[in-house]
Computed example of a mutant assay.
Amino acid sequence: MSLTTILCQVEPGDAAMLDAAVATPFALAEAHGAQLTALVFGVEAEHTIAAEEQAAAMVRTAAERRGIPCETRSRSSFAYGVGDVFADHLRVSDLGVVVTRAGGGAVQRLMLGAAIFDSGRPVLVVQQQHPLEVMPARVVIAWDATPACVRAVHGAMPFIRRAAETLVVTVTDDKELRAGQSGIELTHLLARHGATARFTAVPRAGGGVPEAVLGAAPGGPGQMLVMGAVRHAPLHNIVFGSATQELFDRGPRLPTLVAA
Rank of each mutant, 00 (worst) to 15 (best):
T4D: 15
I6H: 01
L7M: 09
C8Q: 02
V10Y: 03
E11V: 04
E11T: 03
E11N: 02
E11S: 07
G13V: 06
G13R: 02
A16V: 09
D19W: 00
V22L: 10
A23D: 03
A23R: 01
A23M: 05
A27G: 02
A27P: 01
E30P: 01
H32P: 02
A34S: 12
A38C: 08
F41T: 07
V43C: 12
V43S: 13
E44L: 14
A45D: 13
A45W: 02
E46N: 06
R60P: 01
R60N: 11
A62Y: 01
R65V: 15
G67D: 08
G67I: 08
I68G: 01
I68S: 04
C70F: 05
T72F: 03
R75P: 00
R75D: 13
S77G: 09
A79F: 00
Y80Q: 15
V85L: 12
D88F: 07
R91M: 14
S93G: 03
S93E: 07
V99E: 04
V99L: 08
T100S: 10
T100Y: 05
A102Y: 07
A102D: 13
A102N: 05
M111I: 12
M111V: 15
I116N: 09
F117W: 07
R121W: 06
L124N: 05
H130T: 11
H130P: 00
P131G: 07
P131A: 10
E133F: 03
V134S: 13
D144H: 02
A145E: 09
T146N: 06
A148R: 02
A152Y: 04
G155N: 08
F159C: 10
R161W: 04
A164Y: 02
E165P: 01
E165W: 04
E165R: 14
V168Y: 05
T170A: 14
D174H: 15
E176D: 13
A179Q: 10
A179T: 05
A179L: 09
Q181H: 11
Q181N: 11
L186E: 05
T196L: 12
A197R: 00
R198L: 12
F199R: 00
G208Q: 06
G208L: 09
G208S: 15
V209Q: 05
A212T: 00
V213T: 03
G215F: 05
A217M: 08
A217Y: 00
P218T: 09
G219H: 06
G220D: 11
G222F: 05
G222M: 03
Q223I: 02
G228L: 11
V230A: 10
H232V: 14
A233F: 10
L235F: 11
I238C: 04
V239N: 09
F240A: 13
F240N: 12
S242D: 08
S242W: 04
A243L: 11
T244A: 13
T244F: 05
Q245N: 13
E246Q: 15
R253Y: 06
R253T: 12
T256E: 14
L257A: 10
A260K: 05
A260D: 15
A260F: 11
